[in-house]
């Protein structure tokens, strides 16, 4: 473990005690950190220059200006903290995503009608990540979403969110690191493939069979009054033939189980399974999932789809998954 990583781990442990995880935060003396910003230090340096100039030229107005600016900085220390500490912030549970898609953590800044509102811009970012999201609390509606970039599938505990503000004069930076207790499920990225259902007990045999549908052309048969017009084989009629209509086949809404296909890297296989789960759910199929010792019983609907995808996300992989 490098020194940097060690230090980070220590800091996180310390933060864990100082700002315990919660879905909902009202900032207070314990959770707010405040320190002069770079600009604040520059401002102090400039005040120092003014003091030296004022003293050397025995110029009282320059000294007064310098003291005023220093006093203003002192006052700003408090206004800055007071403003930031009024912030109350709440997270709504984060929705699962497919790997490669950004997850959105929806945060809501509560503004109580009774209390004074929080002013100024806040910058929101993930723990130790650059490129913050800037939110203007004065003009923005008080909800916003912080995107979290996902790369690989898995169950991820979202890192702490760093919120900082430079209000009102940019002299101080108030910040806090909040842990909203969010776990994100990242499904495998779907890889298009053929849907293959296996019978629930019997392994190996393909049980898919044909059923009238409208996807693949299957055969022609005599037209019956009442059939949709687009099914009529107009070419046949134009040639002077009988009125016939086309029939199509559709895989039968059938029960079965999805299994991992062998001979492929695990991640690819999982991606394909994810695709099949999505496809089957769209068709409203009744299916189950067998992943080694993990078994999702037969079922259908959104909850079932989520359960299957979760199982895929959780599947122990080759190192990439926590």
């Amino acid at each position: 473990m490098t020194l940097r990583a060690h230090w980070q781990a220590r800091t996180l442990r310390w933060l864990q005690q100082r700002i315990p995880p919660s879905r909902h935060y009202s900032l207070n003396l314990k959770s707010v950190f405040i320190f002069p910003s770079w600009f604040g230090w520059g401002y102090l340096l400039m005040c120092g220059c003014l003091f030296i100039l004022g003293t050397n030229y025995q110029n009282n107005l320059m000294l007064l200006l310098c003291y005023f600016l220093l006093a203003l900085m002192l006052i700003t220390l408090f206004t800055s903290y007071q403003n930031f500490a009024r912030l109350t912030i709440r997270a709504t549970p984060v929705k699962p995503v497919y790997a490669g898609e950004p997850a959105m953590l929806a945060l809501m800044v509560r503004t109580d009608a009774d209390e004074k509102p929080v002013h100024g811009q806040i910058e929101v970012t993930w723990w130790q990540q650059p490129a913050p999201l800037t939110v203007d609390l004065d003009s923005h509606p008080p909800h916003f979403s912080l995107p979290y970039v996902t790369q690989t599938r898995g169950i991820i505990k979202l890192p702490r969110v760093t919120i900082s503000s430079l209000f009102p004069l940019g002299l101080y930076r108030c910040w806090t690191h909040l842990d909203f207790q969010q776990t994100l499920t990242v499904y495998p990225r779907p890889i298009p493939c053929q849907v293959t259902l296996y019978p629930e007990d019997d392994e190996g045999s393909d049980t898919s069979s044909e059923q009238p549908g409208h996807d693949d052309f299957y055969a022609l048969r005599g037209y019956q009054v009442g059939e949709p017009l687009q099914r009529i084989a107009w070419k046949n009629i134009a040639k002077g033939g009988d009125w016939v209509s086309k029939t199509f086949s559709q895989p039968q809404r059938q029960t079965g189980c999805l299994r991992m296909s062998g001979g492929e890297p695990v991640e690819t296989a999982l991606g394909k399974l994810a695709f099949q789960v999505i496809a089957l759910s769209e068709q409203g199929a009744y299916f189950g999932l067998h992943l080694g010792h993990i078994k999702v019983p037969l079922g259908s609907g959104d909850a079932h789809k989520h359960q299957c995808l979760c199982a895929l996300a959780r599947f122990p992989g080759l190192g990439a998954v926590p």
């Binding site: 006093a71 203003l72 002192l74 700003t76 206004t79 100024g120 203007d136 609390l137 004065d138 009102p168």
Partner: peptide, 27 residues
């Protein structure tokens, strides 16, 4: 610069309050 969404009069008011608070300290 730091609170662009706030109306100028409100900004001026809070700045005036801060300045008025800073002035006795400066003196």
């Amino acid at each position: 610069l730091f609170s662009p969404g706030r109306s100028l009069t409100r900004q001026a008011r809070s700045l005036a309050v801060s300045s008025a608070q800073a002035l006795p300290i400066a003196i």
